[in-house]
């Protein structure tokens, strides 16, 4: 027992009762935060409680949220992908290039998604094939992918995307329900099932908790990591299609800084940056929270750069509070 205590790990005498642990969970904390921001917003701005304003909310988080779903899995295995925003830039640029050669909408989508998967596979190969640390690999490919976009475009931009292509980023499925929102919700359900209801998901957790043990229990660690990097690439490709369609143009500086927002969503969602823990529901809630903060502050005419102070503070405070709370409780005990 002393041995365990000295290593900082502690075994509880009995498990918490399920109701208490559900109430005390990270997800319920996020729900509270989301509700708080929602209520604060409706007091702060008369324009907030309006179906169309709330629908605008979607565009604030759907693209980043889509990537965050896949990024959560990557981070749970203990890796990280900093190149997602650069994948968007490259995919968008190559879509623009395809457009110059007269590609139609289905081809454009195929190019965007395909480039995303290829970029992800390249990351995955470097990490699993060459056994390189993912943080350095993706810092490198972050420069490389966006660098290629700069080589192709320079200070130019691609414009003139077809109208039916613009629907992906601007269209509504029904009333105020945008295509982006539907896609995000469908993806969230798919990722929920993948992570929480399949063998694959259990293996992702196993790798994050102890890659060596996972390897010895017959989990193909490298193959799963490779698939996850491809998946992140795929989601980045889809985000590139949505973002390009929404903006209607491509510049090499597109989606600058997205990677930090995506990682903020994932970490805020309760995924441990050390790997091994986290849930999709948390990530979806975190995406919603960031969307709410952005929309609320936007309605109050707060500039984007000041909003980033809020997201940055939110990230640190939400991580720090439970730690402080635990420390205070341990001190009392």
């Amino acid at each position: 027992m002393t041995d365990l205590a000295s290593t900082g790990r502690r075994l509880p005498d009995r498990l918490d009762n399920p109701l208490k642990s559900a109430v005390m969970s990270w997800e319920s904390l996020l729900v509270l935060v989301a509700l708080g921001i929602f209520i604060a917003n409706s007091f702060a701005s008369p324009y907030f409680l309006n179906a169309w304003s709330l629908s605008d909310l979607t565009f604030n988080f759907a693209e980043k949220g889509l990537i965050a779903l896949a990024m959560a899995l990557v981070i749970i295995t203990g890796e990280i992908d900093l190149s997602v925003a650069s994948i968007i830039a490259l995919a968008s640029t190559l879509m623009g290039l395809a457009l110059q050669y007269g590609a139609d909408t289905p081809t454009l989508v195929a190019v965007g998604v395909g480039v995303g998967i290829l970029c992800g596979a390249f990351n995955g190969w470097l990490v699993t094939g060459l056994k390189l640390p993912s943080i350095v690999v993706t810092i490198g490919t972050m420069s490389l992918f966006r660098g290629v976009a700069f080589i192709i475009l320079g200070d130019q931009s691609f414009k003139g995307y077809p109208k039916d292509f613009a629907w992906f980023g601007q269209g509504y499925v029904w009333w105020v329900i945008s295509f982006e929102l539907v896609l995000f919700l469908v993806a969230a359900v798919v990722f929920y099932i993948l992570l929480h209801r399949t063998n694959f998901g259990r293996r992702v957790y196993a790798i994050g908790n102890n890659p060596t043990a996972a390897q010895f229990s017959g989990v193909r660690v490298d193959r799963i990591k490779f698939v996850l990097f491809c998946l992140t690439g795929l989601m980045s490709g889809i985000a590139a299609v949505l973002l390009t369609a929404r903006l209607g143009s491509t510049r090499p500086s597109i989606a600058q800084g997205f990677e930090l927002d995506v990682i903020t969503m994932v970490v805020l969602g309760g995924v441990s940056i050390l790997g091994g823990a986290g849930s999709i529901i948390g990530v979806v809630l975190a995406a919603l929270i960031i969307g709410l903060v952005t929309l609320g502050l936007g309605l109050l005419n707060v500039p984007g750069i000041v909003m980033s102070i809020f997201t940055g503070t939110l990230l640190i405070v939400v991580i720090a509070l439970p730690i402080l709370w635990r420390m205070m409780r341990e001190r009392r005990a």
């Binding site: 203990g78 890796e79 470097l126 060459l130 056994k131 390189l132 640390p133 993912s134 943080i135 350095v136 690999v137 810092i139 490198g140 490919t141 972050m142 420069s143 490389l144 992918f145 966006r146 660098g147 290629v148 700069f150 080589i151 475009l153 320079g154 200070d155 090499p252």
Partner: peptide, 29 residues
């Protein structure tokens, strides 16, 4: 064109990390 700078430094990082990793086979994660 200076627009090549970013891609070149990206490639240099990848090359450097591949070469470094050959020297030390340790987990970098």
């Amino acid at each position: 064109s200076p627009f090549w700078q970013m891609a070149i430094s990206g490639a240099a990082i990848l090359l450097a990390v591949v070469l470094n990793a050959r020297g030390e086979r340790r987990k970098g994660r």
